[in-house]
Design a binder for these strands. Structure first.
Lengths: 424, 424
DNA sequence: ACAGTTTCCCGTAAATGC
DNA sequence: TGCATTTACGGGAAACTG
């Protein structure tokens, strides 16, 4: 009878942060005969929830009743929009919390109920409806976890209100899930993921099984348990990249210049035999929210050598936009004149042709002063005898550069006949 | 009878931000005979204030009564500490605000009152005391203005509670004020201002009058009206520098390596005839919170040439610590090999000797990757025919570099016999 | 329109709870 | 003790309000 619209967080509906205002709207889908009737709607948080089912309890701090109004535009049905609603946690309900135990806060589902009661021709009618399940968080740091829950719920069930969903969450087919992931990128970053990118993501979840379209992913593997050897889950990693794109890489991402999700093996296979200075852009797999470029060079005897720069994270990109980094990046090898090793964006687009329009450093003419910019550089010390400038000597990495290159080259293999990695 | 301690903002007492917790303590200085008596203290904000005198009204949101307790340490006198007090503005008192009109919010003085009542041997005794005048702000952006008021009040009056002080604020002698300013730097940055620095500041306020020790500064000139030609007042400017030091320059400032407050004329006079590559550090006078270095070079015919880099502000210094900027700064002149023009800190300290201990870039060995750092560079285009890399052409400055240098050289003059600018 | 002021709320840090 | 979660609040920006 009513169609409840959802409370919203910046672009992430169904997640409410305590102490932060949200908005929700209810629309009456039947037309009432008498319009001069004051139809009051009351909204309640977690109305008649079986106690003990949910570990935290919240209430609406602000005014929670409002009179319905004829909708401004069009069909003249009744609706009411609650604004400036705010949630606060009830503390110490009865001694300790009705701790369900296993669920994390972002798996705990809540709901917003709406009630109205009116009389028509002697008949008293009670209306009641409620929202889709909601996640309540207390800090934006919980937003990725909360959004994972919202995605999983809405991907895997049509039930309007199964608050126990995460007590035993179903698995997702990779074919479904990959579509949702791509949709995340198109919604929040303006461009979705192509087949190759999704395949790389699938391999990250399932290992090197070539075709993983009928594999299933558990909720835990998707967002709760850490990727083996990493201190974060798959979704936390992917979401950190989404955030990085949103804040620092939007134009570059939308121009389709970021291959992004490529395994290191694939990367080498692609760059091998390309023009020296050919590079591609990919996200860090070892750290949250990082992007790096890898370029290929050839030694005198023709061996391919692959170099990846230390990934740039949001802090670095705040100091210097990514396109400018690509333009200005320099490598200094033992005091030789610095040179930018980045020449062609894979497969063979001249760098300035690709990124020219995205460069944006202005030689800031604050006149009496000499303008100054930051330049990203890498200092390659080829003979280990050179000591660092003056400060502390850094400890040796587990392998020497030579050892690592040998190992890397041994791991490298070739994959024939790839489509353009930037295909739709 | 009581000695009220003050509510505190981070290191800035007497300023309270609405919605942010503060703490205050009251101590009973007389010893009471009966200790088993529950002595309740009540704190009230702006108790019995003549209405209309103050445009904004606030109240204490949290619990405002507490029982006195014997102080833990030492002399066993009674005291009470109110914690987690929080202020909120009363809205719409009676229609409109009792707008005094002329005063800004940071000039509006308030006070906290403390009351207690107890009976001893049939005698009822009322105790009451109150805090020094307080400034209430709603955003940290008002903190500098608020602190200016606190300084001015405490510098210029001994009255414990003259809330109308800023209705007609007295002037300050430069001798008093300069002491307070130096004290700000020693309190918040660990090192005060020396005579030369204070003289430069005095000249900034009074013009080029050599000895300004008996000049007077008005409150308006100190913190309300803008410096001629600048969009900020003297105190806003000085405070922005204090903040810059606190966050980004603490070790360099404390090593006394920042001359800081030097006029451009003085700067040239000092650097002239010094070893090429001699530089000094000074704060920007044209922008808030900026620091620059100026170095001297000589052309083939022996003319001194002074260069100042575009001032570094907190954003840039967040990306790269200042000592590292000094270490790594490079100038590229038309494709020539980049060189660091900074050699000697004025008067003649080799750069690395001065700053060596303060360098702190670690060649971050995230192994599979090539480490990368940011380098501050200036690109000098000596012949105007060279076009900028690829992006938009910037409009011409009002003067060409040549014209500016001529003008600057004409303005330059020499001052004999200076002490070390870094003297205590 | 606009400036002074407040509110909003992200994102980091610290505190708290379990 | 460590991890999960909440609280605190600086700081930038939007909203408010005369």
């Amino acid at each position: 009878e009513k169609q409840p619209c959802m409370p919203t967080h910046p672009q992430k509906p169904l997640i409410i942060k305590t102490g932060v205002q949200f908005t929700t709207k209810v629309r009456l889908l039947v037309k009432l005969p008498e319009v001069d009737y004051q139809l009051k709607v009351k909204t309640t948080f977690d109305k008649d929830l079986p106690p003990g089912r949910v570990s935290r309890q919240f209430f609406i701090l602000t005014n929670n009743t409002k009179v319905m109004d004829i909708e401004d535009y069009s069909n003249g049905c009744l609706s009411v929009e609650f604004r400036h609603l705010q949630l606060k946690e009830k503390k110490y309900i009865n001694g300790t919390k009705g701790n369900e135990g296993l669920l994390s806060v972002t798996e705990e589902l809540h709901s917003l109920s709406f009630e109205a009661c009116f009389t028509v021709q002697g008949l008293t009618i009670d209306l009641e409806t409620c929202s889709l399940p909601l996640v309540v968080i207390s800090n934006v740091s919980q937003l990725p976890g909360g959004w994972a829950s919202v995605m999983w719920y809405n991907l895997l069930t049509d039930e309007p209100r199964n608050l126990a969903f995460f007590g035993n969450p179903p698995r997702a087919n990779w074919s479904q899930l990959s579509e949702v992931l791509s949709w995340q990128f198109s919604t929040f970053a303006g461009r979705g993921l192509n087949k190759e990118q999704l395949t790389t993501l699938g391999e990250k979840l399932f290992g090197q099984h070539a075709s993983c379209s009928d594999y299933q992913v558990s909720w835990s593997k998707f967002s709760k348990e850490n990727i083996p050897g990493k201190p974060f889950s798959f979704w936390m990693w992917l979401d950190s990249i989404l955030e990085l794109i949103k804040k620092h890489l939007l134009p570059v991402w939308n121009e389709n210049y970021i291959m992004g999700f490529v395994s290191k093996e694939m990367e080498r296979a692609l760059l091998k035999d390309r023009e020296p200075g050919t590079f591609l852009l990919r996200f860090s797999e070892s750290h949250l929210g990082g992007i790096t470029f890898t370029w290929v060079e050839y030694s005198e005897n023709g061996d391919a050598k692959f170099n990846s720069v230390e990934p740039y994270t949001k802090n670095r990109l705040t100091a210097l936009p990514f396109a400018d980094i690509i333009r200005d990046y320099k490598v200094i090898s033992d005091g030789v004149v610095p040179e930018n090793p980045l020449k062609f964006l894979y497969p063979n687009i001249p760098k300035d042709e690709a990124f020219g329009r995205l460069y944006n450093s202005q030689p800031s003419k604050v006149y009496p002063y000499i303008p100054s910019t930051l330049i990203p550089i890498s200092e390659l010390r080829q003979n280990a005898s050179t000591t660092p400038p003056s400060s502390c000597q850094s400890p040796q990495p587990p392998m020497t550069p030579g050892e690592f290159d040998m190992l890397s080259d041994a791991l490298c293999f070739d994959i024939g006949g790839m489509n353009s990695p930037y295909s739709e």
